[in-house]
Design a protein around this nucleic acid. Structure first.
Lengths: 256, 256
DNA sequence: ATCATAGTCGTCTTCCTGACGATAAACACC
DNA sequence: GGTGTTTATCGTCAGGAAGACGACTATGAT
């Protein structure tokens, strides 16, 4: 046993992959890019890239995020003060099956990003090489019947598993943290927040009980003073995310 | 942007580090090994080692675990059926700060192992180069007053942070899962399980409410028929871990 | 016999949630 | 202007779960 012998260690390629989630039109969506080269040419994949020689893992993920979406993420582990419209970024898990990339040994550190609804993904320059796709469509064993696109093709590499893990992390984390606000614009209504929960969990929630719960949890929401009527109906009070990050007691996800 | 160019990628060393936790004498303890070579020579560190060229990350962690402790872990992600006395193993997080190893760029995939109380750690051959140390002692900013050992020296590399993350994962995970049984022998009493919670959380729990909670949660415990008096006092019923893995509603960790 | 120890069963109060009625404030349409 | 629709917000009530704690049981130690 000779740990850390600098002269003889097996070399690995290390990458970061991004599970970027948002809520669009009442559906949980993930950012995917089309692969331009083999393997899996033409298939959809999660955005990602190599970690640079002197770059931390979280920094690599944030850099890739800017390159793919223009979003400025703030990693909670970083010492940066709270930025303006940044998205939430956290490490998800690491995938290192020797067979996961047919060309060479690649260990990928997946990160999870929760972002508010964005106008449109910007690819590196190729126009429609990136898009938001509903996660149900990307993951469902039973894809929708052939419509116009090439939907049924699964994601490249082991990205379906990575995406599934990211979605499950998001679903469970909004239970006991205030992270659902990361899907919302800086100011939002209780109804908009409820629609985030409904989209991420895929359930319907009682508006009255939800309102009581979120407004009754100290530090979750702080009123910003204004109101809005952008959803139609009676004007709703606008809130910002409060300082609390952990919800106690947590939001309860309905059984079925 | 040229992702996955096989001819030009920065090479990294990839290792696994293990946070092996157990409960000994009513204290949460971690397995640490003494480093025999620089850097950090003579300091305590988490066990770990290089991932082999054709080895999955979880397999590397399981292999290191056997080498260090003789424990047979069963990764829930693996297709193995439930083994006998195996410990619980799961991936924790990945640490890749460019400065974390002064010699070269090392990315370490940390894993968390929860094991029942073991007789004694077996080192590779060097007798007292491995030991169980209370995590409070390893992590406390305020170490105990100098007793006989060389306690105040912190763990090597960034292992204090890795250990802290592992402990926090264990503390939160026994709230909503049945994982606390991984700290117990195959058959155990409600009181022994309660002492696990008390040691991991560092709190005192009401024996009556705890008993009501764990015996009232379907699938958490199944009686094995026997009783024991190894704790003194009235004989206690023996249980095994039931099939349930998620506790709903969760165990509640007291505030202070 | 008495005590100490640990386990097990109940009770009571309080808090939280789910179900759901009712009211309020906007807009669309006739 | 009236009416209906939509969404937001407040209230009420019943059931379940948890904390506090009393009471009883079954063993070993003295």
């Amino acid at each position: 046993m000779s740990p850390y012998d600098p002269s003889a260690f097996p070399p690995f390629a290390v990458t970061v992959d991004l599970v970027v989630l948002t809520v669009r039109r009442h559906a949980l969506c993930a950012l995917v890019v089309r692969r331009g080269e083999p393997p899996f040419q033409g298939r959809w994949a999660l955005p990602g890239g190599f970690v640079r020689p002197d770059e931390d893992l979280g920094a690599a993920a944030a850099r890739e995020l800017v390159e793919e979406t223009g979003l400025c993420a703030h990693d909670p582990g970083s010492p940066l003060p709270e930025a303006g419209n940044g998205a939430h970024l956290e490490q998800l898990a690491t995938y290192g099956d020797p067979e996961r990339d047919p060309r060479m040994r690649v260990v990928s550190v997946a990160h999870l990003v929760l972002a508010p609804d964005l106008p449109a993904p910007r690819a590196g320059g190729d126009a429609n090489s990136a898009r938001w796709a509903p996660v149900d469509e990307l993951l469902d064993q039973e894809g929708g019947a052939g419509r116009e696109g090439e939907q049924p093709a699964p994601l490249a590499f082991d990205h379906a598993r990575i995406l599934a893990d990211g979605v499950e992390r998001a679903r469970s984390k909004i239970e006991y943290s205030s992270l659902a606000t990361a899907f919302c614009p800086p100011e939002f209504t209780v109804g908009e927040l409820r629609r985030v929960y409904e989209a991420v969990w895929g359930v319907a929630l009682d508006p009255r009980n939800f309102h009581r719960k979120v407004t009754g949890t100290p530090g979750f929401l702080v009123p910003s003073g204004g109101t809005t009527t952008r959803q139609g109906g009676r004007p709703a009070q606008l809130f910002r995310a409060g300082g609390a990050t952990l919800l106690n007691p947590p939001m309860l996800r309905p059984e079925v």
